[in-house]
Amino acid sequence: MNTEAQEMERIFERPRALRSATTHYCPGCGHGITHRLVAEVIDELGIRETIVGVAPVGCSVLMYNYFDIDMFEASHGRAPAIATGFKRARPDLPVFTYQGDGDLAAIGIAETIHAAARGEKFTTIFINNATYGMTGGQMAPTTLVGQKTATSPTGRNCETAGYPIKVCEMLATLDAPSYIARVSVSSAKHVLKAKQAISKAFQLQLKGFPYTFVEVLSPCPTDWHMTPQEAVEWLEENMFPQYPLGEVKAPKEGV
């Protein structure tokens, strides 16, 4: 048997919803993984030609250069308001926002909470890398106590800078959201679970369930001043205890 000649079939390839483009993300950045997961889910649900996304301000502001779908670019933190306006005008189309921790949990926390409280029927993908990536690694609302950043050079001091916001747990106090989950893209095993959560959120939206939210713990090697390997290890050691993984809220009937 000539093994090299054996017929092979492609079992993993670039999803259709992603353009064949090199991203501007740094090596080892979790945005690229999460982009692919969202794109795979879009493909699998057959919604590439109907979905509308909202890009944030931050590292992923240019995500519309990578996704081959209709997209808005928001201003900093306002993606949930834009998604609300659009979804109210086009309730027939699936809608998602993709936001980082500075965008969502600092400047846009009001828009986030109220979209969740109203039970807006879109999905939010929330990238939590505990820092402001695009502007060069400043302290974010999700920066851990003691974590060194450009604006907490000796480590986040809870006496002066307070404590990190657990967005999932906070949103879970609201009645309207139907699905709130926290996942990680720090290893292939976690990536598989992350995709399940993202898929579930989109499927619930398609079924008409209100506000669905997936927080993705994501490495930022550059602004953490680590190698990609160190970054995923640091994430699992330090972020997992602060931000426990799993479904914080889910509808009783499954997808």
């Binding site: 092979m8 079939e9 079992i11 993993f12 992603l18 090199t22 991203t23 690229g32």
Partner: peptide
């Protein structure tokens, strides 16, 4: 083995996986 884990962790969609039919 074609487990695809490399492709699933890849942040740059640089890996395609092929498996024997």
């Amino acid at each position: 083995t074609g487990c695809t884990l490399c492709a699933r962790i890849c942040p740059d969609v640089a890996i395609e996986v092929f498996k024997a039919k």
